Amino acid sequence: MVTVSLLQGDITSQAVDAIVNAANSSLLGGGGVDGAIHRAGGPEILAACRRLRAGALPDGLPTGGAVATTAGRLAARHVIHVVGPVHAPGQDRSHLLRSCYTQALAVADEIGARTVALPAVSAGAYGWPARDAADIALTTVLTAPTSVKEARFVLFDEAMLRVFTEALGALQPR
């Protein structure tokens, strides 16, 4: 069973087997977590993403999908890129957000990763409401079949850490 931990910090500094990147479908870098991972990891990550685009993923990574690359200069060994859904009021796209986490864990299993650092996928620029994003992320990771031993949610600010802490508390028996 996976152990979930929560911390506020910089996901790029985590010494884990794999870091999950909230990427855009192009895989060619962007803002937020994606930009930070590409900057800190160096050109090796972008080169690996370009190879994916030139081969297996010519149209990019679909929303809800996951794929692994090298982690370049990061302390992690791999980066698992996922494409979260943009929140759309009036449309239930939660299955796509759940898929990001289940697919990331499946890829982690494929590459032998036992420790994984994850961001709050879609809860930033993609506008997903924080508590709903936390509930989906935590429930999915805690119930997904995986060989990952530690899922470490690394949250950018104190407010998001508080939301995830409250959500995790609500999921755990008293």
Rank of each mutant, 00 (worst) to 15 (best):
I19A: 10
A15H: 11
V33A: 08
L61I: 12
T146R: 08
R77T: 15
E166A: 15
V4P: 08
P145E: 13
P145G: 06
T70K: 10
T3I: 14
C100Q: 09
I11A: 08
F156S: 04
L142F: 06
H81N: 12
G72L: 12
D157R: 01
G127E: 06
Q91P: 00
R50T: 12
A167V: 07
A40I: 00
G30K: 04
A47D: 15
V82Q: 04
T165I: 00
S5W: 02
E110D: 11
D135T: 02
T63F: 05
L74C: 11
A15F: 05
L52H: 05
I136M: 07
G41W: 15
G55K: 06
V116M: 07
T12R: 01
G72D: 14
A66K: 05
T146C: 03
G90D: 06
E158F: 04
L138G: 12
L74Y: 12
A36L: 05
M160W: 00
G65F: 06
T139S: 15
R114S: 13
P58V: 02
D17V: 12
A68N: 06
P43Y: 07
T140V: 11
E150T: 14
I45V: 11
F153E: 02
I45C: 04
V121G: 14
R131Q: 14
L7G: 14
G60A: 02
R98K: 12
L138R: 10
A120I: 08
A15G: 02
H38K: 01
G31D: 11
A120W: 03
S94G: 08
A71F: 09
Q172W: 00
A104E: 11
G31A: 13
T143H: 15
A22R: 05
G112P: 00
L52F: 01
L161H: 05
G124M: 10
A66R: 06
A56E: 15
G90W: 03
Q103N: 15
W128S: 04
M1H: 06
V20N: 01
A68I: 09
L52C: 04
A18V: 06
T165K: 00
V33K: 10
A36W: 03
